[in-house]
Write a protein that binds this DNA or RNA. Structure first.
Lengths: 257, 257
DNA sequence: CCAAAAGTGTTCTATTTACACCCATGG
DNA sequence: CCATGGGTGTAAATAGAACACTTTTGG
């Protein structure tokens, strides 16, 4: 969404392109160097930050819609997006604060009380994980977009606090059943790096020695003949994912301890 | 839904009471004596059987809507209903066959192409398990309601085949994390009975000897001082659930391997 | 040659699985 | 008193967690 004309058209005729009463919200987690962040956006006219989300085109699947949304906000494509829960309780979309004057100032569009946008909406929740160092949060006319530390989030708009809790929970459960990391680590990485990734995502300590055994036993990790010099006394072996086994594990699921 | 007047009002003004574009469908599994069944309904005007479902009132939560739906179809209240996935891909609600003449014959209501009912709809999937011997499928003016053997289902309308597959999968995963049986077994039951229940729901054999150990160790099962005579050489002990521990496990989850 | 970090191996423990065997009961 | 299913116990196998130790490398 960029120009005023586009916004105006969306407000007036969006219901022709999008399915009304249904939206989706994405908890996009960002990882980099042992930090876990969450992408939040802030509408100029809303009081609080919220999860990036949007409507679903009548022609696209839910996952496609989620992907499009993520692309718009992060410029990252083809993430592993996972539907985790749908939210639809009455009262879930109460504004903490809506500054109509500000909204009109920016967009020159009035949102009428009869607008398709104003009616009750249920929302399908997705989550994804990306590397926040390679993404560029896309702000535009009406919204600011920013990474926040996961354990230091501001209070969120609507029921988005609950969504984040559920998304984190779902993500951590999934970590035991699906491999992760192919988009979050460089192509070649050390055991320490993937170890740190898992510790950060799970939010707890993992034994450095036992941790890689299962991944290697499953054939997900392949040891390379290269080493890297990253400082004093340190020249760890490099590993990479076995793409075939990895995709297979994504497809069929595994148990990772 | 009973009378023609009610149906007429629903078709014309339903969008005032219900959220348009959003429905829910319930995979209601029925267990009894080692048989697993699924409740299906058939609209008079549709070619195939489908999952019972309906719209969500603007004033109720998703779970409340699902419960109301199940109550309408089975007369059973307060089931443990679990949201498992939301379906919204375009083309998901293609009729295999819609007999408009038949529909009008029964309801005396025309469904206009501009009706709120005709537009694209996404659907939230729930599943539940009940005892099919104590439920009375409720048929009415427009629909027939019947139990089908899970591994001998007819081809279903819309994307309901996929829903059933996903529901079964979700249910079997959940069985490892939540206790089940309090609505499916008599208040006092034998170890064989609960063993058969788990084998049927999971669709695989479980070692009869090891199976109860975890349940007993967790304190979910309490042994009673009673026995039952159910035939030659057979007088097994009776057990019952520890309601408190059971509810706690439902709340917090356990691992029942 | 030493300190720091990488990586391997061993041990101990807990959990799971398989299965043998005893017991109670009704015929 | 014996055939049958109910129930218990134990041994073997596997998986998980803890941690010691060896190797490598830069200074």
């Amino acid at each position: 969404m960029q120009s005023q004309a586009e916004i105006q058209d969306f407000v007036l005729n969006g219901y022709l392109t999008y399915i009304p009463h249904v939206s989706l919200d994405c908890a996009i987690f960002g990882y980099h160097e042992q930090q876990l962040k969450l992408l939040l956006i802030k509408h100029v006219a809303l009081g609080r930050w919220c999860l990036p989300g949007g409507y679903i085109k009548r022609t696209e699947t839910l996952v496609e819609a989620a992907n499009r949304n993520v692309k718009e906000k992060t410029n990252v494509d083809n993430l592993f997006l996972q539907q985790f829960k749908t939210f639809g309780d009455p009262g879930r979309a109460q504004f903490s604060h809506f500054d109509e004057k500000k909204w009109f100032e920016v967009t020159s569009v009035h949102i009428d009380k009869t607008s398709w946008l104003v009616d009750q909406t249920i929302s399908v929740g997705f989550y994804a994980i990306t590397d926040f160092s390679i993404t560029e949060p896309q702000s535009d006319l009406t919204t600011t977009c920013e990474w926040f530390d996961v354990d230091n989030l501001p209070p969120l708009e609507f029921d988005h606090d609950e969504m984040v809790r559920d998304a984190l929970h779902a993500m951590r459960i999934q970590l035991y059943h699906y491999p992760i990391g192919i988009n979050l680590l460089p192509e070649k990485f050390t055991l320490s790096e993937i170890h740190a990734l898992y510790e950060t995502l799970l939010g707890k300590k993992l034994d450095i020695s036992n941790f890689p055994k299962k991944l290697i036993a499953l054939g997900l990790l392949k040891k390379l003949d290269e080493k890297r010099s990253i400082g004093a006394h340190r020249s760890p072996h490099l590993y990479k994912f076995d793409k075939e086994k990895y995709d297979q594990a994504l497809q069929n699921g595994v148990v990772l301890s």
